[in-house]
Design a protein around this nucleic acid. Sequence first.
DNA 1: CGGATATAGTTGTTATACTAACTATATTTG
DNA 2: CAAATATAGTTAGTATAACAACTATATCCG
Lengths: 146, 146
Amino acid sequence: MTQEQFSKYSFLLDRTARKVKQYAQQQFKMGEFDITVDQWLVMKNLSENEVLSQTALANLVFKDHPTLTRIIDLLCKKGYVERIPHPQDRRSFHLNLTQSGLQKVSELKPQVSQIREKAWENLNSKDFEEFKRILNTIYANLEQNN
Amino acid sequence: MTQEQFSKYSFLLDRTARKVKQYAQQQFKMGEFDITVDQWLVMKNLSENEVLSQTALANLVFKDHPTLTRIIDLLCKKGYVERIPHPQDRRSFHLNLTQSGLQKVSELKPQVSQIREKAWENLNSKDFEEFKRILNTIYANLEQNN
DNA sequence: CGGATATAGTTGTTATACTAACTATATTTG
DNA sequence: CAAATATAGTTAGTATAACAACTATATCCG
C-alpha cells in the first residue's frame, strides 16, 4: 500500500465523525432536546460519576479545559449543572447535576441510544469490535508521550 | 450487544478524529507549513482538479458552502489561491492555485503523507480495508436521503 | 417577455477545538 | 517560612462546523 492511499483514512475519519455528530444533532433538534451532542456527553458523564472536578471531567470526556469551561458555562445557564465550591481547594469546583439536569438525563438516555443505533445498520458485533480496536490503536499511536 | 455499548462508538470516533487532526496540526506547526489541516485538504484537491467552482470543491471535500467560503478567503489572503470570475456565470468562480500555492502543495505533499503514516503503526492493510468499509457504511447509514 | 424558482456564493450567529496567556490558589523545597 | 513551582480554572484569539438568512444572477415556464 502506498503512502498516498493510507492518507485517505484521515479524510474518511473526519467526514464520518462529522456526519455522526451532525446526524445526532439534527435528531436532538427535532426532539427539542434543548442541548447539543457535546453537552449531552458532559451531562451523561456527570450522571455516572458522583463528585467530579472540571479537570476530572475533562479527562473523562477527552476535552481540553477551555472547551469544558464553556460547555459547563452553557449547562449552568440552562440550569442543568451547578458549580459547587470545593470545600478544601478554593481553586476547584464540584460539578453537580441539578434536579432538572438529572431529569433531563434520564429522559434523554433511551432516546440518544436509539439515535446512535442507526449508524450500525448493516454492521454486526464483530465489526464493532474491529472498529473499536482500530480506533484505539490509532489514538494510542498518536498520543503525545510517544 | 446492548444499545448502551453501541453508543460508545460515537465517543471513540469523535475522540480519534480529533486526535488525528490535532496531531497533524501540531506537525504542520512544527514544520512551519503556514496552513491548517483543513486548508491543506482544500489545496490538495485544487491541485488534483483543474477547473473547480466553490460548489464543486465543497462536494469533493464534504464541507458546506459557508465553511468553504471562509477557508478560501484565508487561502486567498495567504496568496495560495485566487478566485477567477467564471466567464459565463457571474455568480460563480473558478478557483485556481497560484504559483506559490502550487509550490506549497508539491513541497508539503510528501511531508503530509509521512505525518499521516504514524497513525497506522501496528496496523496492516487488512485493518485499513476494514476501517474504510465500516466508516463508509456508517456514513451511508446516516445520509439524509434515507 | 416576465414572474417564479433555482443556484452560487456570502454573511451572521452559535458551538466546539486548540493554543497561549492569564489569575488565583496550593504545594514543594531550599 | 518564603520563593519557586505546580495546579484549577478562565479569558482571548483563530479556525472549523452547522444552520439560517441573505444577495446576485440564471434558468424555467406560462
